[in-house]
Design a protein around this nucleic acid. Structure first.
Lengths: 222, 222
DNA sequence: GTCATGTTTGACAATCCTGTTAAACGCAAC
DNA sequence: GTTGCGTTTAACAGGATTGTCAAACATGAC
């Protein structure tokens, strides 16, 4: 267990020999997402980063601080793109398709983040505050009203044009995100209940990506 | 800290002075759902049940065994009603409304179970097996095909009658459950992002309960 | 009353986990 | 080369956590 053997006995460092701090953060990301904050062990993170576990405390003060850093990374990766897409000025029919494709493509690359986020927020709802302030680059109370106002205006115009039924922007948003996110968050449940292996699950998601926009737009029709 | 003081210093036992084993199970239910299996502490469960923590090991062998018992209780409470409703012989238009109302009413009484389930299954996907065998009273491989076959037949008939677009029973089911369950699982996220206090959240859910059936049925129309 | 049996408890053992520290290491500046 | 400084490590301290056990306790049978 000499110093030299350290690198060789560990799995290949994820990001080559990049910054130790960055390697630790990436290892922490994997372990916290996999086990949850409560179930994660500093020792496991250290092993996965290929460093002594004292280093975790050298770069990050404590487990709680490291967990917070990971949580904010996840929040920043997950929320801003959707908020931007939802609040854009694209016509609402196009926006629906854009959000669905963006979200499903994004989650296909990070399939475990929704379940991680839901679990963390459930066990420690106070983190929702971090979520909001960190994820939206500004105040939560500034971004949200603008997005909702844009949606409300677009919906009202479509209703006046007779192409859409009235719906609050909140219900619109939650309906859209439910259909996109839930199949990832509940993946283990779905694969078991529907008897899907990994390949079948991926086909299932691909089918949703194709069908959801039309499905959703039909539901909005008058 | 005499024996006699035990009862008086604890919070009022939840189920009066029922079976100790039952009181432990109910306390464990609350603590495991609140903190997750990894975050729960046997001591906290014992305190909440008003008993010495050695009793938890007397009635249940270990923390893992107690966690399994709670998990199966939750699974049994959550899944069978939905499966029954989904697989019933009611006309599919009525079924949609029945499932939505059943699910939202049920989850309104147990709002934290979806996030608990999602978190547990995410961190330990092997539990999905327990979920299936425990929740559906029989094999998972027996109930599922029957429910899906019923739905497939009903959808095919509606398609033939020209009242519905084709959709696989799997997508049908996941769409329906996503819209019902996600708002509960992601409650802390939604309340923060949409700026809802508890009252507003309850109104939001009530509105969904009223609007979702028509929303969903419109999406199915040809 | 006392005996037997199933409960309950306090105390303890063993391990696990987080966080600290002093020393070793490596390397750049001089 | 040696000095200084940021990095890394091994070892340890302190406390939390799960699990065990022998003894005390209650309660009904006799």
């Amino acid at each position: 267990m000499t110093v030299k053997s350290r690198r060789s006995r560990e799995a290949p460092p994820p990001a080559a020999d990049g910054d130790t701090e960055q390697r630790i953060l990436e290892a922490a990301h994997r372990v916290f997402v996999r086990r949850g904050t409560a179930g994660a062990r500093m020792q496991e993170i250290a092993a996965e980063a290929g460093v002594n576990h004292a280093l975790l405390h050298y770069y990050f003060r404590s487990k709680a601080a490291l967990a917070r850093a990971v949580f904010q990374t996840v929040a920043r990766r997950l929320l801003p793109p959707v908020m931007a897409a939802l609040g854009s000025d694209a016509p609402i029919e196009e926006k629906v398709e854009q959000v669905i494709h963006l979200e499903i493509d994004h989650l296909s690359q990070h399939p475990f983040l929704p379940a991680y986020l839901i679990g963390e927020l459930h066990h420690d709802p106070q983190r929702a505050r971090e979520l909001a302030t960190a994820a939206l680059q500004a105040d939560p109370a500034q971004v949200r009203p603008r997005v909702m106002a844009t949606l409300r205006r677009q919906i009202a115009e479509a209703v006046r044009a007779g192409t859409m039924r009235p719906i609050t922007p909140e219900q619109f948003t939650v309906n859209l995100l439910s259909l996109c996110i839930f199949p990832f968050a509940a993946r283990p449940m779905l694969t078991t209940m529907l008897g899907l292996d990994q390949k079948a699950y991926e086909r299932f998601i691909a089918q949703r990506r194709a069908e959801l926009p039309a499905f959703f737009l039909r539901a909005l029709r008058p």
